[in-house]
């Protein structure tokens, strides 16, 4: 299998752990990832606030590049990018006038739609998911995890078409396929405050605290995330939240790819767990030989 890989801004800075662990598990699965040479930023959570056309052009320019390189599907790990790519495709399909304006800017036409896929979709689809159990090398069955999906991956469902938007199971299924049990909880799809992290940190601390509280209440020992924004707010800001509310969570926040990599026997030194703010030793202690 071979996909284009949109390894965007955040996976090269705040979310390098995500990129590193994702590459490790895709390598084990013999899935080839090709970075498009001429990529640019997709507009992230910024462009759609100032210009609809710009917010459509930026992701579609990247898809045009991928099309030029002869690939028909792209894996997009960052949920903000994933959301922008899918929204842009949806909007030009619905609005021919916008589509014409986009084509005028990017100076190319879309003959065939490049398929935009989240790594969770690659891993949960056949034949990949059936192969996961045979790749498991370490036992993590003693670790209690909650899967957190957040907002960008799921909503609005008519555009994202990802799982059941109010009660998704994709990540739970994948983690369970590599022997990691997940707990049920009520904050699976709540927003962490994402784009307000820098401008209104007090709001983010409130929303993220609600998430940490619920995870702790159901007995979680770690939270599994698919998004660099969620990781930043829950991991990097966790200590601040604890200080503000005089509580102690000490909940490691791991990308689902990091948990999978640990189960698949990727050595700790080939991951970037030291980049985490909340110490991950409590998770590593639960990784035992089979």
């Amino acid at each position: 299998m071979k996909y284009a890989y949109y390894n965007s801004c955040s996976l090269r800075s705040t979310g390098r752990e995500y990129d590193k662990s994702l590459r490790a598990i895709f390598k084990k699965l013999d899935i080839e990832l090709v970075e498009p040479k001429n990529w640019i930023c997709c507009g992230s959570t910024l462009a759609h606030n100032v210009s609809r056309l710009l917010s459509l052009v930026l992701p579609l320019q990247n898809l045009a590049e991928i099309q030029k390189e002869g690939l028909d599907a792209v894996v997009v790990p960052c949920t903000a990018c994933y959301s922008r790519f899918k929204t842009a495709q949806y909007e030009i399909a619905e609005n021919p006038e916008m589509a014409a304006q986009v084509e005028e800017v990017i100076e190319s036409r879309f003959e065939k739609k490049v398929k935009v896929i989240h790594p969770l979709e690659v891993l949960s689809s056949e034949p990949v998911i059936s192969r996961l159990p045979e790749l498991v090398e370490k036992d993590l069955s003693g670790l209690k995890v909650v899967s957190y999906y957040g907002c960008l991956l799921l909503r609005p469902p008519k555009i994202m078409e990802f799982d059941i938007c109010e009660y998704p199971q994709t990540m739970d299924k994948i983690l369970s396929a590599v022997g990691i049990p997940t707990l049920d909880w009520s904050h699976k799809t709540e927003c962490c405050g994402g784009s307000l992290s820098i401008t209104r940190p007090e709001i983010v601390r409130k929303l993220s605290r609600d998430l940490l509280e619920d995870a702790k209440a159901v007995g979680a020992e770690a939270i599994s995330v698919p998004c660099t924004f969620c990781h930043l707010n829950l991991d990097v800001r966790q200590e601040e939240i604890e200080r503000e509310h005089n509580v102690s969570y000490r909940l490691p926040i791991l990308y689902f790819t990091e948990l999978m990599a640990l189960a698949m026997g990727v050595s700790e030194k080939d991951l970037l767990l030291k980049m985490h703010f909340v110490d991950t030793d409590s998770v590593l202690q639960k990784v035992v030989a089979r």
Partner: peptide, 16 residues
């Protein structure tokens, strides 16, 4: 300005 663009409103709107 405060809208997080989390999409909950749009997802649940009965009138789309």
């Amino acid at each position: 300005w405060l809208c997080l663009a989390c999409g909950t409103c749009t997802t649940r709107c009965p009138q789309e």
